[in-house]
Amino acid sequence: MPENLSDLTDIINAIAIDDSYVAYKKLFGLLFPSIKRFAYSLLKSPQLAEEVASDVMITLWRKRKAIPSVSNIKAYSFTIAKNLSLNILKNSSGGKIISLDDISINLQIDNTTPEWILINDELRKSLNDAINELPTQCKIIFKLVKQDGLSYKDVAEILDVSVKTVDAQLVIANRRLSVSIRKEFNLAPIKKN
């Protein structure tokens, strides 16, 4: 292997140009867990999520000659995962589920981080409640940005919405959370006098 496979672009080129099995395996390691997690959040079945993530990976392999022209491989994979998951949901629900808005998304704050141990139960509960009440699309955007570190542009591409929508939805989410925070710390409203 002449190429150095530390860089995602190198990995993709090695797959596209050399049909490299080693590079493909590496790409699998980089993408599979987050794709599976994303599919799971939509499907709520580890088995189906595994299948979807596996199908996404083989799609990348089958289309390997074309993937160097894809601007962001992660966003591209997530888009395929979203479509495959929606197809499964559409079929198993007898056509009742046709878009992401028809499904419910679980979003729970990870309270195992050291910082969270310092935050009291009441605020934790209040924030979790606020998150749970967010609309589906808002939750998905929140998750993709926070958990998967995706950019506004990537999220917009995956969900087929505008960058403006992504920004606006995230702001809505944080504004709702800020209500909980304000109550907890008894903060004065941010306003010019």
């Binding site: 997690r37 679980n106 729970q108 990870d110 944080n174 800020s178 925070i181 710390f185």
Partner: peptide
């Protein structure tokens, strides 16, 4: 006071749902 918002929002991480 805005610092409270920043610090708290920064700490929010989501649970990995996968079993």
């Amino acid at each position: 006071e805005a610092l409270y918002y920043e610090e708290t929002l920064k700490q929010i991480a989501f649970k990995n749902e996968l079993p």
